[in-house]
């Protein structure tokens, strides 16, 4: 649906996007993750045509964004809703009028029966049907983002672009918003692109992700593959500062998925079959929209290192030195 090929962008001498290639398919919830300043927002703004790019191509359903004239670009933009970290609602308009605004841009009367029906339907979807007359100033952050979501959906877009949509919200509110976004993805069949620096967001709802570092796309794949995998290119980003492993011996991290009990038996079998001792230093389980992924760090003495690693490789268990 969205195809990005060898995209390059500079601001004066600063290269912000370097040779980025991505493909986002219909129905994806695609996460674009990276540190602040990595170029995520710029990439999203290029997709929406808010920002031109220097080289490469972005096509949406086969149409090259850079080749559209003004009118065609506006039409393309109307098919992509967008939400922002700071909500970007008009303070002087009430909830209803904020949601109505994009319709008015497109020449529709805000109180026409079909506008009214659509706006009320969307406000109900986001759970704000009783706050229609409120001003944004009277709403909480989570409620403001719900208004922004309703506004982003009012032109019946096929794609929803989210720039740090939950970064200004509490963890619980973030969860609620993410739940709403997945519901929108599922029920309205809207493709979602989520730009964020929050790992939790990607883990929670993204079906695919790209990790961007200094304007380069370092890794693309399914979150569970990239987060819970040996020698992942995004290790540096996800490394847990609270991880304390012994200084002596060799630390080995093994990865497993779905069936935690299988891992259990591997560990005990390995201990039995190799007849060695090792310490279990760290274990974690993570939920990737339903798929349980986990890893376990063990510490073995130097002399047993060879035996353990060859045993793991032989059993096809992903591992790495930790």
């Amino acid at each position: 649906m969205i195809k990005i090929q060898n995209l390059n962008k500079k601001y004066d001498n600063l290269t912000v996007l370097k040779d980025i290639s991505l493909e986002i398919n219909q129905g994806d919830i695609f996460g674009i993750i990276g540190q602040s300043g990595a170029g995520k927002s710029t990439l999203l703004r290029c997709i929406n045509g808010l920002e031109p790019y220097d080289e490469g191509s972005i096509t949406i359903e086969g149409k090259e964004i850079a080749s559209l004239d003004k009118r065609e670009l506006h039409i393309m933009q109307s098919r992509m809703g967008m939400i922002f970290q700071n909500f970007n609602l008009l303070n002087r308009l009430n909830v209803y009028d904020n949601v109505a605004l994009p319709l008015q841009f497109w020449g529709k009367k805000k109180n026409a029966p079909e506008s009214r029906e659509k706006i009320l339907h969307l406000l109900k979807l986001v759970g704000l049907e009783d706050r229609i007359k409120s001003r944004p100033g009277q709403l909480s952050g989570g409620q403001k983002q719900r208004v922004a979501i309703a506004r982003a959906l009012v032109l019946d877009p096929q794609i929803l672009l989210c720039d740090e949509a939950t970064s200004a919200l509490d963890p619980q509110i973030t969860k609620d918003i993410l739940t709403l976004l997945s519901q929108i993805n599922r029920e309205m069949n809207i493709t979602i692109v989520m730009v964020t620096h929050q790992m939790e967001v990607v883990k929670e709802i993204c079906t695919k992700m790209a990790y961007i570092e200094n304007g380069e796309s370092i890794a693309v794949g399914r979150p569970e593959e990239l987060f819970v995998a040996p020698n992942s290119p995004i290790r540096n980003f996800v490394r847990d500062a609270s991880e304390f492993l012994p200084q002596e011996g060799v630390n080995i991290r093994l990865y497993f998925n779905n069936d935690a009990t299988a891992e259990d038996s591997v560990i005990t079998r390995m201990a039995r079959e190799l007849d060695i001792n090792f310490a279990i230093c760290d274990g974690r389980l993570e939920n990737y929209h339903g798929t349980i992924m986990g890893s376990l760090a063990i510490n073995v003495s130097g002399e047993n290192q060879e035996a353990v690693t060859s045993y793991l490789s032989q059993k096809n268990i992903p591992w790495e030195y930790a």
């Binding site: 670009l73 506006h74 393309m76 967008m82 970007n88 609602l89 008009l90 841009f105 506004r151 032109l155």
Partner: peptide, 14 residues
């Protein structure tokens, strides 16, 4: 707020 202008542009406003 420039964010409001950006939001309006993102919906295809002239």
């Amino acid at each position: 707020d420039s964010g409001l202008i950006e939001a309006a542009r993102s919906f295809g406003a002239s």
